[in-house]
Write a protein that binds this DNA or RNA. Structure first.
Ligand SMILES: [Mn+2]
Ligand SMILES: [Mn+2]
Ligand SMILES: [Zn+2]
Ligand SMILES: [Zn+2]
Lengths: 157, 157
DNA sequence: GATCTAATTTGCAATTTGTGCTAACAAGAA
DNA sequence: TTCTTGTTAGCACAAATTGCAAATTAGATC
């Protein structure tokens, strides 16, 4: 996603208005590597702008996605996560706490599917399932089995 | 997922009962490569067993997942899809119609993330975005741009 | 700066997908 | 056949997101 200033210009060039709500969300999303949910963003935004509505958060995120400035990430059945990182990258998900981390995956672009010769492929996404270090620690302490099921959904494969 | 007969035995060995509803769902899911939604399965099941409840469909699918007999697939924000294919495989999604196709991806198991050295990785999933041949045809006929946005969500990356 | 208009924000209703709960029911053991 | 315990169905509820319309405001125009 571009800088808040660049986005303001982009918005105006699209006949969209640059409101305080949008500017705040531009800031909150810019270089945000947390893959936040709409609710999480709403909470952050509300702290700085009491009264902003969740509806506006969703609306702005949808616009940004429409304009190609961010991506929606749907993994594991929870709420949609939003990703302003437009670089070619992939994700690791902690199956325990749900945290998503950006990762590089060398060789990902070279992957090819066998059995879909009739498809025109546009993109590849790689998702690793794992357990983050902090969850690994608490798991050891609790004497849990290596793969608990806080998350009912088994992520994609 | 195992055969309906094997599942019946497995269920009994777990102290679970083998009901007509479950047997029907075993049949409908066995070797089903459609990655159906719960609603889709419910529709098919209802045709053969009027009165079966959607609740029971969800319940049975959850059980099967718990027993490791099927996977949940969450892509693109729509409803969860269910996958009885336990082989190591990956998916291609048509960004136009949403169809999911099983594919093999040689080299997928060898992929490694850079930037998540503190994670214990358990699984890798590869998802290709593309347009299936039938959508490609209708797209050509309609003179549409190569990537329309019937699906707001940009799938993972 | 005042005026005007179209875009935006809000709040709330509605929708979609899935789960919690429980009374009625039925599998399968005895 | 009886009995116990797991299961089903149905409905209420929850979570996430969108539809809608009245009130507001950005920014163009005068
Ligand atoms: Mn990312
Ligand atoms: Mn599959
Ligand atoms: Zn974690
Ligand atoms: Zn298609």
């Amino acid at each position: 996603m571009q800088s808040p200033t660049a986005l303001a210009a982009l918005y105006r060039s699209h006949g969209r208005k640059v409101t305080p709500q949008r500017q705040l969300l531009f800031q909150l999303m810019h270089e945000n590597d947390q893959h936040p949910t709409a609710e999480a963003l709403f909470a952050e935004a509300s702290a700085q702008m009491p009264g902003i509505s969740l509806r506006t958060v969703y609306q702005t995120l949808n616009e940004l996605a429409e304009m190609g400035e961010l991506q929606f990430i749907d993994i594991g059945g929870g709420p949609t996560r939003f990703d302003p990182n437009l670089d070619d990258h992939h994700h690791v998900v902690c199956s325990d706490c749900g945290h998503i981390r950006d990762v590089q995956v060398s060789g990902a672009a070279a992957l090819h599917p066998s059995g879909a010769e009739d498809f025109v492929i546009n993109e590849v996404g790689v998702v690793f399932q794992g357990v983050c270090s902090s969850c690994e620690k608490s798991r050891a302490k609790a004497g849990k089995s290596p793969l608990n099921k806080t998350f009912t959904h088994v992520y994609q494969n």
